[in-house]
Design a protein around this nucleic acid. Structure first.
Lengths: 128, 128
DNA sequence: CGGTATCCAGAGTGATACTG
DNA sequence: CAGTATCACTCTGGATACCG
């Protein structure tokens, strides 16, 4: 399969498949939560500590979305005080690999983008 | 490098690298424009025709961001009427591969996600 | 402990009209 | 042709307070 043909996958159905995925993981916290859960199953409060900066509300919302999509499973234990644990499902695990590729690209090309932005911003507006 | 170690890349610097990338490509149009330009260099109006639904304003904004990041180059020809052509830079091209992996995941797992959402939504709110 | 409910500020997006 | 300018709207995310 050629590089060209593969690129067509992105536009595929007018881009609907990948758009849907990006609406999921394109937000501020989802990938961080997924990557954190990949280390091990974890309860709510532990997750909140390991994802620095996330608010209770956003962690709740993120986990609910992930559970609805079947990427994370939620287990509530009938105890007092309550205990709830989250873990990646099998499908959720398969997302790690493509996500890591993206992260590798990001880390590798961050300096390029910095440089390009500085050049761009230094140009006189009239030259743009 | 283990799967576990690779996943750490996502959280890397508190997730800053991949967050920056997702702010770029996580929006509605960027990846569609990149994938379209991957076919060939193209002028503004042609691009607008090939990316169905995009407004003039959003295409302008998307291209300006991509140019600032150094993923797309812009060439204006001093003609009347004006002609401007866009093409992927070398760095821009390297983004195609990880993006395609993501698209492949999206296409492959779309049915899983549909099913999971239907199950989730069918559950009584009290069971959640 | 693990959530909900409410409110608010800001960013992303789109329609429309105008311009070199 | 390839943009800019303006306005309106929606959606996200954050702060805070309360609940089982």
């Amino acid at each position: 399969m050629s590089q060209y043909e593969r690129a067509c996958l992105i536009r595929g159905d007018g881009g609907r498949a990948i758009r849907r995925l990006l609406e999921r993981i394109g937000n501020k916290w989802t990938l961080l939560v997924v990557a954190t859960l990949h280390e091990q199953r974890m309860r709510f409060s532990e997750l909140q500590q390991r994802v620095p900066g996330i608010s209770q509300r956003m962690l709740t919302l993120t986990l609910q979305h992930l559970e609805r999509d079947g990427l994370v499973s939620r287990t509530a234990y009938a105890e007092v005080p309550p205990r709830v644990e989250y873990e990646l499902t099998d499908v959720g695990c398969t997302l790690i690999d493509p996500a890591v590729r993206l992260a590798e690209w990001a880390v590798e090309h961050n300096p390029d983008i910095d440089r390009s932005q500085q050049l761009y911003d230094a140009r006189k507006p009239s030259d743009r």
